[in-house]
């Protein structure tokens, strides 16, 4: 436990603790506002919401005043923070002395945590690229005209739950795990455990094809390729299955394809995590050039 307190109180980790609190607060605030609006809309009083949005006020003083107060408050917080807490400075850079564990800056620890489950070319290159591209693609994939300009939950359940899952579970929680629960050798340590650099971890991971008794690497190659293709093919199957629903019709084939690919790629991470925890799966698809 002292170990956790020690990591928590490291100057560089204070922002993470602050971030967790802030995200908790703002999620609550969103939920409160969404409940209010949903109740209003549910009662058929969307017009009132609209009317409120049409109501104009002067920027000076009503907005400028708030901005000014926010700026002053923020500068006070920042000043106190900078007086009380010193930025870390460790020993001079030494390329011959690798610290254990070596960690990326905290905002990238989610990506570093993904390295446990995927090889660097996926966790370090493909996933970051897909995150950026996927975020950019959101406005072009979301065809739901409702919930534009006000907090809601009822009208955008799929969009919001997907975003919250990706943001909280696959980004914020992974940052938390990477920062606070990963010790020497990037081994997992419970918060109350001491970081033992000599912790013994059994190497029991196997590849998926080994579960099926496949020993030949060529057969394993085609087997793994089939499994991965089949996973992404579920998107195609879903498309033909739900072809006549409002949701798929509105999207069209191209949009649906992009969305299904991004969604399945995202869900690949939690699926692989669960497979690792339950079946000790190392790789799904082993090839001479890359492993997935």
């Amino acid at each position: 436990m002292e170990n956790l307190v020690l990591i928590l109180s490291k100057a560089d980790n204070i922002p993470i603790v602050m971030m967790l609190l802030l995200f908790g607060f703002f999620t609550w605030l969103w939920w409160r506002e969404a409940q209010k609006n949903d109740a209003l809309i549910g009662a058929g009083r969307y017009g009132e919401l609209q009317a409120e949005g049409k109501d104009r006020i002067f920027t000076w003083p009503y907005l400028v005043r708030n901005e000014f107060l926010a700026a002053i408050l923020l500068m006070v917080i920042l000043t106190v923070w900078s007086i009380v807490l010193d930025a870390p400075l460790e020993a001079p850079a030494n390329p011959a002395k690798t610290p254990n564990p070596s960690k990326a800056p905290w905002y990238f620890l989610g990506l570093q945590e993904m390295l446990v489950y995927f090889d660097p070319w996926i966790a370090g290159v493909i996933f970051p690229t897909l995150i950026i591209v996927g975020l950019m693609a959101i406005p072009y994939m979301d065809r739901n005209p409702k919930g534009n300009g006000y907090y809601t939950w009822e009208q955008r359940k799929f969009a919001i739950s997907t975003f919250l899952f990706g943001f909280f579970v696959l980004w914020i929680i992974l940052i938390f795990v990477g920062t606070f629960l990963r010790g020497p050798g990037w081994n997992f340590f419970m918060p109350w455990a001491n970081w033992d650099p000599h912790k013994v971890v059994a190497m029991v991971n196997v590849d998926l094809h080994q579960y099926f008794g496949i020993r030949n690497s060529v057969v394993a190659f085609f087997f793994g390729g089939f499994v991965v293709s089949a996973y992404f093919a579920t998107g195609v199957i879903y498309y033909y299955w739900k072809k006549n629903t409002e949701f798929v019709k509105k999207l069209g084939a191209a949009r649906f394809g992009v969305m299904a690919f991004l969604f399945l790629s995202m869900m690949g991470l939690p699926i692989k995590m669960v497979l690792r925890w339950t079946l000790n799966i190392q790789y799904i698809w082993v090839t001479p050039w890359f492993n997935i």
Partner: peptide
Amino acid sequence: FRVFLTGSYKP
């Protein structure tokens, strides 16, 4: 997060 939750990325 705020811009997403208010749906402000929509057309």
